[in-house]
Design a binder for these strands. Structure first.
Lengths: 210, 210
DNA sequence: GTCTATATCCAGATAGAC
DNA sequence: GTCTATCTGGATATAGAC
């Protein structure tokens, strides 16, 4: 989701688990490749993207990609990991906001901020998940965990507002975001996301008042 | 959307505009190809699907596909047309229901009925639109028109219920469906769609009562 | 560690026999 | 109209020079 993109790209933990910072690889080619993969996958889709596209975007020679990733699948996996880390970074930042309702509204505000990107390419994470679900590799399960993590965080906020139906409300909020991202993208209308974002903000206020 | 799938496959206007029923082509190969394309695109995604996959599913020899469609793009276009016709058929059927609120609830009920499919493959139309938006051909614009048609129909129902904000409510309803389809698919949990469907039904009742 | 050249594979598309 | 055999292009992946 665009939630993930709210994190400044510069510091987001693009370096995945197995990555050795490798003193040698000056220029951080692996990091550049992952960053490029996340962006190009978002703009073109995983299936349509060639390793050549990613190599070009990262300014790394094509053949060199294989030094860092054995196959395309591993680049996709690294991209999912990057989204996961971005989510962690974002929720950690939101957790510094004192009030649960304010935290949720900040989350929504971040989504709305990304509406131009959403109109062009959809939600960075939602479109990725949709594509992964059609693939053979098991990466859709990894992506599902990231989605679960988001739902859990949102649920926790509603629970702190005293709602016993926090889990359902979390699904409602995240689904609303994913759905409005899809419509915003399909109709190429960022205003749609702004309007729905305003609605969600009022909705959160209404829940917090109770 | 799965709305479209509620129409019985057997009669849905799979025969697109330019199709001559062609007395000669006994066995309706073109129709079989389009039907197969819609299904396989849904299950595997457009990009991952080869013409061979579609030919096999339609039980038509691969080379023969090119007699009916000059290129893969045209099969995709035919699939979009098929979704469009399914939507027309569905709304025509729903229009026979006397009350606008009942019509909307019947729409939702149809979505919920398709929840097992949604859990496996997502919304047939939503996942297609998402993929088309990443492609170069202009087919995403065609798909956008179908989405617009759905929104317009839903908006008309809310307008008949006397709501001046019918357009926003239509976006809210369709977005909710698309979002819950994505989550249902990602988490492989049809129950999620059932729960959200129940919520939407109550929501529609609440609007109708006012 | 880096990168070029190339092998391999496979999907889209075509030619032409039937 | 139908189908087989084949061409062609492009993407993944590798071998091996530097």
């Amino acid at each position: 989701m665009s939630i993930l993109s709210q994190v400044t790209d510069s510091d987001a933990g693009v370096t995945a688990e197995g990555a050795r910072p490798s003193r040698s690889g000056r220029g951080g080619k692996r990091e550049r490749l992952v960053r490029a993969a996340v962006q190009v996958f978002h703009e073109q889709g995983v299936e349509k993207t060639t390793l050549g596209d990613i190599a070009r975007a990262a300014e790394v020679p094509l053949g060199n990609v294989y030094y860092y990733f054995k196959a395309k699948d591993q680049l996709v996996e690294a991209a999912v990991d990057a989204h996961c880390e971005q989510l962690d970074t974002l929720t950690a930042r939101l957790d510094t906001v004192p009030d649960p309702a304010a935290r949720l509204k900040a989350l929504v505000a971040g989504w709305v901020d990304q509406r131009e990107t959403a109109a062009r390419f959809g939600c960075p994470f939602g479109t990725l998940v949709t594509e992964l679900d059609k693939r053979d590799d098991g990466l859709d399960r990894d992506a599902a965990k990231v989605m679960r993590a988001l739902l859990d965080w949102v649920e926790s906020q509603f629970a702190q507002l005293g709602r016993p139906d926090a889990a359902d409300l979390a699904v409602e909020l995240v689904a609303a975001y994913q759905g409005m991202s899809l419509l915003t993208n399909t109709l190429r209308d960022p205003g749609l996301m702004a309007a729905q974002g305003a609605r969600l903000t009022s909705w959160i206020d209404g829940i917090a008042e109770q």
